[in-house]
Design a protein around this nucleic acid. Structure first.
Lengths: 160, 160
DNA sequence: TGCAACCTTTACGTAAACGTCAATGTTGGC
DNA sequence: GCCAACATTGACGTTTACGTAAAGGTTGCA
């Protein structure tokens, strides 16, 4: 029996790799590499095996790029974060399908532990950044004060 | 056994590379590499060309390590930050040795611009991290609520 | 003075995160 | 049904940030 599946190649909301790359600011090579190391898989493949990405793939790619560029995480760390997310999903499933209150509680405690560790980790990074920002702002204030002390602008000081 | 008196050549407060490495939690190789790419130079060399590090070198190495491990900066970025710091130092010098108010003002405006860009940069990273922390904390609260709803601990849950 | 435990430079090896061909297949408009 | 523009899977090249080994010099204690 032939399954008349959603014909991926027809859906205009699916992007080919170059379009997806342009959309999120990556290169096709990077996206393929992320797939190679298990960070994501395209939602579908065309008849001729072209990778096709849907909206959630795009979000995921944006997430990865953000962590890489903005937060400076390695792909391994990003993989860990994504893996944690999947683990949470699985745990929710386990939790829902469990009847034993002791087991349900154990699942929650486990999840709580992991989240705590993750928060600790992120906080550490954030604190380091915060103190760098503080220092920079202190310098900024110092400079601004000096500048104010010198009187105003050099050329056109007066506003008509 | 001998009392291992770590006398470095002249000044006992100068550390050889392995001691410095142990002190800050790096390897000698890394320190040499940082020197190779221009991140620091040892305060002195012994008669036989051993690298000798003083207290300010150690601080600098700690700084580098912190940025690398905690904040996830690349060595190139760290180099940029250290370079900025040296540029600030030079600018202060230029500023002090200048008489012309217009030039002094220009120097300050320039410095202010650079600091602003740096702050912008750091803020971006910090915001990304902050939102990740928020999400994690939301999950944490959610889990904690569920846990509380299940009734209390299985064993000894007395908190202080 | 001897020598073990450091250190030096030089150089090749490696893992991560891609860049860049090359050979070949797919799509879609005319 | 043709063909330019895209895609595929290798496979090798590159940069960063070191690890590691080799060949030899230095230090300092016995």
């Amino acid at each position: 029996m032939t399954t008349a599946q959603t014909r991926a190649s027809d859906d205009p909301r699916l992007l080919r790799i170059q379009e997806a790359a342009a959309e999120v600011g990556l290169t096709p090579r990077s996206i393929r590499y992320y797939e190679e190391v298990g960070l994501l898989e395209p939602a579908a493949r065309s008849e001729g095996a072209y990778r096709l990405y849907d909206e959630s793939d795009i979000e995921r790619l944006r997430f990865i790029r953000g962590l890489r560029d903005d937060a400076g995480f390695s792909l391994a760390q990003i993989g860990q974060l994504l893996e944690d997310e999947r683990a949470r999903e699985r745990n929710r499933e386990r939790f829902r399908s469990s009847e034993d209150p002791r087991e349900r509680r154990a699942i929650l405690v486990d999840a709580l532990d992991r989240v705590d560790r993750q928060i600790e980790n992120l906080r550490h990074k954030a604190e380091r950044l915060a103190s760098m920002i503080d220092e920079a702002e202190a310098r900024r204030r110092h400079l601004a004060d000096h500048l104010a002390g010198l009187g105003d602008a050099p050329k056109a000081t007066r506003k008509r």
